[in-house]
Design a binder for these strands. Sequence first.
RNA 1: GGACGUAUAGUGUAGUUUGGAUAUCACUUCGGAUUUCUAAUCCGAAAACCCGGGUUCGAAUCCUGGUACGUCCGCCA
Length: 590
Amino acid sequence: MELLKTKIQPLIEEAVEGLGVDSSLVGRMLQPSTGHTWPPVCDLSLPCFQFAKKLGMAPPAIAELLCEKIGEHEAIQEVKALNGFLNITASPSWLAQQLLSGGVGQRSDDERREVLIEHTSANPNGPFHVGRARNAILGDTLVRLHRLWGDKVTAEYYVDDMGKQVAVLAWALENMTEREVETLLADREPINPQWAEKADHQRVRWYQAAQLRRKDSADSEAIESAIGTLVHASEHGDQGVLDSFEQAYQPVLDGMLETLGRLGIHYDRFTKESLFVTNGDVAALMKELGDLEINGVADNGAQFLDLGQRGLKGKTEFFYRRGDGSSLYATRDIAYHRWKWTQCNELINVLGEDHRLQAQQVGLTLEELGERRPEVMFYSFIKLPEGKMSTRRGNVVFMDDLLEEAQAHAAEVLKERRPDLDPATMATIAEAVGTSAVRFNIISVSPEKGFTFRWEDALSFEAGSAPFVMYSHTRACSIRRNVEAADPSFITQPPQIEPFEGEMPAGLVELLRTLAVHDDRLSKVVKEHRPNLFANYMLQLSMAYNMFYRDCYVIDQGKVNPFFFAVSEMARTTLKAGMEALGLVALETM
RNA sequence: GGACGUAUAGUGUAGUUUGGAUAUCACUUCGGAUUUCUAAUCCGAAAACCCGGGUUCGAAUCCUGGUACGUCCGCCA
């Protein structure tokens, strides 16, 4: 709790110095109590173990001594020695005053940054499946969290508009008939009629059929060489070929973006990979790389960097140029990164764990060129209970299907709970609940941990899920509506808040404490790229609000309590902003 | 074979960067609250740090050796 720490640190330092020990460590040692217990036993805690040796005293005794030395302070409710810790609890009325006066959460300009976040960047060759969605959901959440913090963010999608995957798609659309495609895919699950008009679902079948023919047909060699020619042309910047590629993939990409849009995921900019080939950046880059100390040349003229000399373990040769002089994917990625650095002062990539090595190579090369390396948030792949997700084996869950299912499930729950609602409202709420639950289910797990997709988890609407948070928010909204009905002046001209008299109910204290650590948590989450911690915070905030709701009646016997209402409103706006930062729909009624 | 990542109650997870208290939250199980400012709620109980060694007053956290799972090791993208 930084809010409290800045106020009372001098007080503690003085007390520590009074014992005759160095107080310079106090700043580092004075921490929120360890988060192992919820609710926390206190707001700030000073472990006294390090002083024990110097003073020749037992830590609990030191804590006792310090405890006696700390004087009264308006911000402190209680100082207590316990098990060798000096525990400080903030005064709830002081917290309330700080929070309600609006002084909390102001960011100075030098804390705001221009951030470019690249995420998703999936090959436009087929519909989004749940595996790919982890990238988009994590990336978009990071974008939103940075915006909540006050950063200026550009969300960017790097479009893979050249190379083999798109070439296969373009070749298939040009050379195969629908009948041929369907014959080849006869033993696969047919296209879901619901998506029959959606280009990503349509065209992926051409792609899949072509993949089969490439492997396993009489003319596979001829096909391979035709595709090879296309790839080669695209890598040399042949505009005609690039245009035909675009015609092939753009409708697919549009379909994918439609799916993402349903989850509230949007981009500020799309940058095409081919740009860096056609504008000469890649050629210039390869020339520059060739002059580096660690450059090497293979027998056929291909070139690489020996990154072993820069500490890379395992495979040390990093090829950036083929024997025929053309560039590789990673080479273009480096050119792309140099360009990205001209657009921002902080760069974040969201990448699957399969990109770890390549990200190392790109990072080391950028440093070799005198650039900074980007920060990367890696995530591990989503599996199905049956095993790895694979389009080839038909073992996939499409996002489009998941979202439909989630919506339907939410509609079912709603029908029982709110039979009074009209169908249109019900559909809107069900859509919001469904998509929010799907996002939350994925966000709330640490990115680097493995994730197994389970329908029952994704569609769970109980405590610990998005609807739990959403529900707390609707309660706060409902209270606001009731207050407005009881006395509109509370909304139009909020009254002066009198300090709270007497002892605060537990739920109120808990809510104030939780609101008070909002900025601490957000700051950590944004700096360390860990959206799941904020999801966790939102659950805590919702729980705290529910406790407050239990203990404090904003409207009691028709009369509005101004203090409770002010706290409720603060929680409501904090909940709303936090939900938006996680991409959850902040419904006002559900 | 090599590089990297992960391992916490029956299940899913937080905490590990910076060692410190009774290890978080939920599902499940068991028990309780309700003529409610929206019960998709609240209160209570039971239940876990992969295995071995080391450092330390103190290890889920740091070091080391195993085991299991995942990812990568293309002049592919």
